[in-house]
Design a protein around this nucleic acid. Sequence first.
DNA 1: GTGTTGTTGGAGCGACCGCTCCAGAATGAG
DNA 2: CTCATTCTGGAGCGGTCGCTCCAACAACAC
Lengths: 211, 211
Amino acid sequence: MTTTTSSVHAPAVRRLTAKGEATRARIVEAASALVFAHGVTRTGVEDVQREAGVSASQLYHYFGDKQTLMRAVIAHQTTAVLAAQQPELDALDTFEALERWRDRLVALQRSRHCVGGCPIGSIAAEIADDDPEARADLVAGFEQWEAPLRSGLTTMRERGLLADDADPDRLALALLAALQGGLLLTQTRRTTVPLETALDAVIELIRGYAA
Amino acid sequence: MTTTTSSVHAPAVRRLTAKGEATRARIVEAASALVFAHGVTRTGVEDVQREAGVSASQLYHYFGDKQTLMRAVIAHQTTAVLAAQQPELDALDTFEALERWRDRLVALQRSRHCVGGCPIGSIAAEIADDDPEARADLVAGFEQWEAPLRSGLTTMRERGLLADDADPDRLALALLAALQGGLLLTQTRRTTVPLETALDAVIELIRGYAA
DNA sequence: GTGTTGTTGGAGCGACCGCTCCAGAATGAG
DNA sequence: CTCATTCTGGAGCGGTCGCTCCAACAACAC
């Protein structure tokens, strides 16, 4: 129970050919792009078929139903989001790295003209209350995100960059929350100002713990 | 242009009877509750009809289409959200008021068992990119929210509670972003910890500006 | 080659969606 | 009372939704 893989008797596939793997990947990528652009509910299975260039039977061959597909989308977007924050995210152990990470996030949203929020957060807001299994995946996704933040801050404290009374757990969570809220407001207002302000505020708080 | 009322030729009603006003209100309230629980897209017009106890023709008599109804929901929820934060929100001019406000928000989410995020923020995440008019309403809603935060912090600075280099605009925006992000993570993780941590972080930053 | 399993195409079903339409009942103005 | 306007009930239409089914093709194991 509470396995990270799909639950009981997923109509998914046991073994996948190289070709099948490619088809499956194309479906997930197409679905991810559409969900990012229009949300889960507004993304129809038929839209995914068209975008991925597959037939209905192919889609339902690899994913038993839409819910399963959406869980695959969550997994895919989690990986993509973390990758988009590299290399800074995995070594957030100096104030300079923290600032570069902040700048990268802001630049990314600016390049998107502030359209679209967080690929994971948006899904969370839409289906966290309605799909328990997806919610578990989202919790895991956020945890994968928070972990490197926590680890970077911990390293900073160990190296004496942060005072002993700085709490890496608290600060990492505050950072993630500021990021999510900043993204939402940036998406709504179509300005990167909220994202910048939210991140800068928490970073300033962290700087207050500089040793 | 950019009026706050509905735009060109809204099929809405010119004059409303007392009875009509009541019916309209019932529809908006039912729709608001359903949207809060299940989101915009998952809320069917038929669901609203059932919940409000009205027929299809009634609903379309008061609201030309679903989009118009959703804009009314945004307006209604904006009022409701602000009301739920009173009396603190309108007088956030001491640290004590700030803490009471924080406690009220946390208690509210706890009483909901962390189900459902921000009534406005959730809608924003879902349709900000797809409905330009709704997005404008949401921007206005957030502004109505941010204004008292800004005004409270400004008062604190004027009274000498905050140093001159404290920027009420920045801090108010950071507070709102932390709140939104905290609510999203709290909704996803089903714990009030993220909300508490996010708000406490920004409040701690503000306290750093205490004169 | 043969059999098994993975892969693909495409028609189509039942349910639900937002919305329309028309006729009748209630209401307010004169 | 008269009449225009507002309000209500309910059937139903065209479209879309998630999904099923069946038959054929391709790839791999032996």
